[in-house]
Nucleic acid binder design. Structure first.
Lengths: 187, 187
DNA sequence: ATAAAAATATACAGATTTGTATATTTACCG
DNA sequence: CGGTAAATATACAAATCTGTATATTTTTAT
């Protein structure tokens, strides 16, 4: 990928997170990226296309980061679900965390038929599916049920931390997860 | 309150929820409300003022609705926490639920110093405090801890339901809450 | 009915939005 | 060096945005 294109993507990612998507104009993006609108519209057909790519890249980065965390840490399926919350905590308490992109995007584009909203919902679904696969590995019965419950805790904590940095929400989400996982293992 | 002012508030509430705050111009609001900008700016000093009032009224309506639900239903403190999730489910699965206002507002105004963001965070804090008071009545030890955990479930479920109607998230949030509450009562 | 208040109609200023057209400059490659 | 592609500079169109100025109409109250 062209370094200029990558720069635009990176700047857009940052500005969208810190100022909001609708509040960030393409003029601001190109100014910060040190380029011009002509170049931006050469690489992205429209602002909506840029938003979609930012979301996609963000989600992929998150997934890759998680994947790599698991590879270099633990391999026992039973521990994975617990360990996940440690990784989430690390992700969320990182100094440049500004909220989960797809959560915020779905709020800025509430219409269910909007492409940005659709992609956000799809990413949320994928994340829940990933949780279900972890639950399945751990030998849980109602994998989808637990996955949804854990996703509520995680996304709720991300939301809380985005609202108020240092809320400590993940700490309690982790405790709650432990209780829910233990309970699901017993049934 | 002037009926015209109330109408503007009501229309703005609806449009903000369905189209997003930043994507809704005052021209659209006055057109739908059947009035003019002159009148809108007579009752509200700025669009930001209108947004803040919409949020405040929305939160007050939610609180009043909950309050009234509790009054006409149960009085036993121990049951209240469980019952709360039934009320939340009723609220969230109502056909015109379009997401929790303060959650979406904080996403559209990510800057922590923005007045809209501040009010959103304050409302989230108040709701958590209310949960803590219920937990306290129920004889819970770590009231703040449980309150935060339940708030993650509730706000997570609201987020999930806003993303995809009919997700059934509240059903599982309710189950998770039962487990967490029982666990907190044991300790 | 008459005076005072409320609401409307209309127009506009000034800024900002996305997206494009055109021309110039820079960078690279053989 | 010469030619090609990439990036830039600049300007602009057309729409939309918040907020205001001014004048007229409607409603209300005495």
């Amino acid at each position: 990928m062209s370094p200029l294109r990558a720069k635009i993507l990176s700047v857009a990612t940052d500005l969208f997170q810190t100022r909001g998507i609708n509040s960030t104009g393409v003029d601001t993006i190109v100014a910060v990226a040190g380029t011009t609108k002509m170049t931006l519209y050469k690489y992205f057909h429209s602002k909506e296309d840029l938003i979609l790519e930012v979301l996609q890249q963000g989600h992929q980065d998150f997934q890759s980061w998680l994947q790599q965390k698991f590879e270099t840490n633990t391999k026992k399926p039973a521990e994975k679900l617990q360990k996940l919350f440690d990784f989430i905590e690390e992700w969320v308490t990182s100094p440049d965390f500004r909220g989960m992109a797809f959560l915020k995007a779905s709020a800025e584009f509430p219409n269910e038929e909007n492409p940005v909203h659709r992609l956000s919902a799809e990413q949320s679904r994928q994340f829940r599916q990933y949780l279900a696969s972890l639950a399945s590995e751990a030998g849980i019965q109602d994998t989808e049920g637990l996955a949804l419950q854990l996703s509520l805790l995680i996304e709720g904590a991300m939301q809380a931390e985005q609202m108020k940095r240092g809320s400590g929400a993940v700490k309690y989400a982790k405790k709650a997860a432990k209780v829910l996982i233990d309970n699901a293992l017993k049934s």
